[in-house]
Design a binder for these strands. Structure first.
Lengths: 107, 107
DNA sequence: TAAACATATTGACATTTTTCTATATGTGTG
DNA sequence: CACACATATAGAAAAATGTCAATATGTTTA
């Protein structure tokens, strides 16, 4: 499979969980520490920690430590890049995959 | 969980598979029958049938029968709706979830 | 340095997803 | 109507994901 699909699908997978999508929405107003996010859900702390790791590893969320707390914020460049890639894929274009042959680059 | 996240995550889940994302990209130039799509991947026919069902049930792909063949095409309204919703979620807004309290509408 | 607090990791389990083989269904053709 | 062709469904196995309790790690403060 072409890298563009693998990379994009990794980000999509990260936000394809309703709870993680809600976390991204929460972060759109600015950074939040894990404890604040946790207050907003009925999940355990390890579950949130795992979810934040998924978002960070997908590259769409940044983390920074300040004392005991970890603060998370959106990586807008990555998110804009995602919207841009989806836009290209959803609409017809010059050098289109539609003109390509069988995929020999398996996943 | 609020319906907006559940609905959006269902669509994201549908395209969070690299192969299905590639299928969406292929359909951006116009409708294709299942057999044409199948030629483009190293998967079995039932696997493609299942993948197309996921895309159709997410509402982003339409299907129509013409004789022996099923033709698939993109539902642009749904895809535009997705981009629009993501745009709202990624950027700060007036009536923001950031100002909301604990989520009592569990999934 | 010991205790308290915030977050991460481990290991386990249940659920969901992916993909296959075998088979069924629907449609056109000889 | 029997056969060929295109697609769908059923059932099973493997892999990935979501979630928890228990515990570890890192940080601040008494």
């Amino acid at each position: 499979m072409e890298p563009i699909y693998k990379e994009t699908s990794k980000i999509l997978k990260a936000i394809s969980d309703a709870k993680r999508l809600r976390i991204v929405d929460m972060l759109s107003c600015g950074e939040l520490c894990a404890c604040k996010i946790l207050e907003s859900f009925d999940i355990t702390q390890p579950t949130l920690s795992h979810d934040m790791k998924v978002l960070v590893e997908a590259g769409i969320v940044n983390d920074r430590r300040d004392g005991k707390n970890i603060y998370y914020s959106l990586n807008m460049e990555k998110l804009e890049g995602l919207l841009s890639k989806l836009n290209v894929m959803f609409y017809e274009k010059e050098d289109c995959i539609c003109n390509k042959k069988k995929d020999h680059h398996r996943m």
